[in-house]
Design a protein around this nucleic acid. Structure first.
Lengths: 339, 339
DNA sequence: ATGAAAGCGCTAACAT
DNA sequence: ATGTTAGCGCTTTCAT
């Protein structure tokens, strides 16, 4: 470190306490003194030492961001955008974000992320499916936790959630309003709350339109919701069902798998089958046709998670919140009206 | 913080200096004392305070990882894997990694990443194309810098580089050995050192085989090397050239664009055209056919960058290194032998 | 409104 | 081989 609080105090002709108060926006300082101090801070290009600060305040100024490796390395930059949203927001605040991954199949014997063990963070953001054993192991820990895009029961954690039910309704209603009645649902693991809720929306939309959805058209399994899995489930769906005209895939990755399956089997999109995805990760993907999907504001999810976490840190009474982030349908060319 | 060095000293019946020496693996301590201290450290679950440590040592224990936003948000997890390699390695060491993005068109008036301004990192890793203005602005700074996957001239920075020339040779020789003579090259910005070198390898392989490459078959532009751009350049290539039988695309993203173009224009891969990419990002992409490509060890690139940076931090004489990481060709089904 | 001074938890001389 | 002690740069009472 170069220039310290002492240098500033000396140059400005005040005590270090005064400098400290100015730096921390304490209003007990006269505006002249403040101005003077601020000026010499600029002149000297002074930045307070984080470590000295942290040592006194018993904070770290860091927040930890945990992602499972499969999420971080997803082909589509879904979770990286959520991270970036948090990082953008952290730049405004006084925080740094430490990103780490844990294995998706985290077991009780795996160590907790290092920043938790050695208390290098003041709080934690976890995005996407959280390994249950991780939560268990985290249980003893007193750090505030915000969970993004994953729902957990009766926990003292705040949640930033996608409005999945409404998204499912939007996607399905769009299909129904375009005349589709025999609609398939392609999901991943139905035990994943997001997928469960999207299916829920799927059913609700049918109900509202007085259509009975056929359970045989609902295809899920316990695999990771990626393209390959979408392909496989599309095969299941179309070999056991004739005359399906619309498909709602629970995310864009699976929708792309469905596209591949349909092309391989000489179905035309949207002439033969209309297809709706979820997430909106298609930019730069060069899909043909462009995919109608439900847009999820990924940057906003991350930013909101950061804000909620910091507000809990500041108020240090942890009042768990649950925030639903709205979604919208983006109609592109993978869906069309039928008579 | 909870348990401090004092608690450990007290419980173990030694001085805090002794505890400190044990923690820092100083060999001036008798093995009995060491054992005793280590035991009570375990018992008390003691972790040294980073901030206290950093305050004394004038280090931060952090290293900064800079990526341009377009790279971080690339569809294929290329740079995120490089980051992860660094992060894996940091877990072994005593470091944390702060990840931030800068705009790809960073200008002189954009602020440097915050962790540089307030000196919250001991060193920096930059991956991928580095905005020139960033480097200029970084000039005054004394922090060691390691650059991954991008070449800069006459700078005191260490480099971890892909062996692009050899990769270009491998890709092209594979085509040539399979009987191809009229081979196209699809690149992005030829001023990007990696692309320049891959083209270099392309030419070298032709030379070795005594084939004169036709400049009209080399298509580059200044755009970002993504799928769309690959598509566009493929159109250029195939409309101005007949009977091309092989294409080397300078990365997988562009190769995918080429694939799309070929499919849209009723070329069969590999029956009509053999296609080779570069990077190996295809896992989970569901390409048809699977792409022959040059594999780049992304995790290893990041890990190596971290190692080099830390070794410079430790030796604090900055001896800039240049490390070439080898590549290999992965033959899949997008290439075939012609007579 | 400002300053003096204690102390956060640790490392590194220096002493023993 | 181990202990004593002086800071590192800051925040925060407590005085003034």
């Amino acid at each position: 470190m170069n220039v310290t609080i002492k240098d500033v105090a000396l140059k400005a002709g005040v005590s270090i306490a005064t400098v400290s108060l100015v730096v921390n926006n304490n209003n007990r300082i006269s505006s002249e003194t403040r101005k003077k101090v601020l000026k010499t801070i600029k002149a000297l290009n002074y930045y307070p030492s984080r470590s000295a600060r942290d040592l006194v305040s018993k904070k770290t100024g860091n927040i930890g961001f945990i992602l499972t490796d499969d999420h971080f390395l997803r082909t589509e930059p879904f979770y990286t955008k959520i991270f970036l949203g948090a990082e953008f927001e952290a730049r405004e605040g006084e925080y740094y974000i430490l990103l780490t991954t844990v294995k998706a199949d985290f077991t009780a014997s795996d160590p907790l992320p290092r920043f938790i063990r050695d208390k290098s963070v003041d709080g934690i953001i976890i995005a996407g499916k959280v390994p249950p054993k991780l939560i268990e192991k985290l249980g003893n820990n007193s750090m505030p936790v915000v969970v993004v895009d994953y729902q957990m029961e009766n926990k003292n954690y705040s949640h930033i959630l996608i409005d999945n039910i409404h998204g499912g309704i939007l996607a399905t209603e769009h299909l129904i309003q375009n005349g589709h009645k025999k609609i398939g649902f392609i999901g991943g693991d139905i035990n994943h709350p997001s997928i469960y809720e999207r299916l829920n929306g799927f059913n609700k939309a049918h109900e509202r339109a007085n259509i009975i959805p056929d359970n045989n058209r609902i295809k899920t399994n316990t695999g990771y919701p990626d393209r390959q899995n979408g392909y496989n489930l599309a095969r299941e769906l179309f070999t056991s069902n004739k005359n399906i005209t619309g498909v709602f895939a629970c995310n864009d990755a699976m929708a792309i798998g469905v596209m591949h399956y349909l092309k391989d089997n000489n179905y035309k999109i949207p002439q033969d089958v209309s297809l709706v995805g979820f997430d909106d990760v298609e930019a730069d993907l060069l899909l043909d046709p462009p995919l109608t999907t439900v847009r999820v504001p990924k940057i906003e999810l991350g930013a909101e998670a950061f804000r909620v976490l910091v507000s809990q840190l500041k108020n240090n009474k942890i009042q768990p919140k649950k925030i639903l982030v709205p979604v919208e349908i983006l109609v592109r060319n993978s869906t069309k009206k039928i008579q």
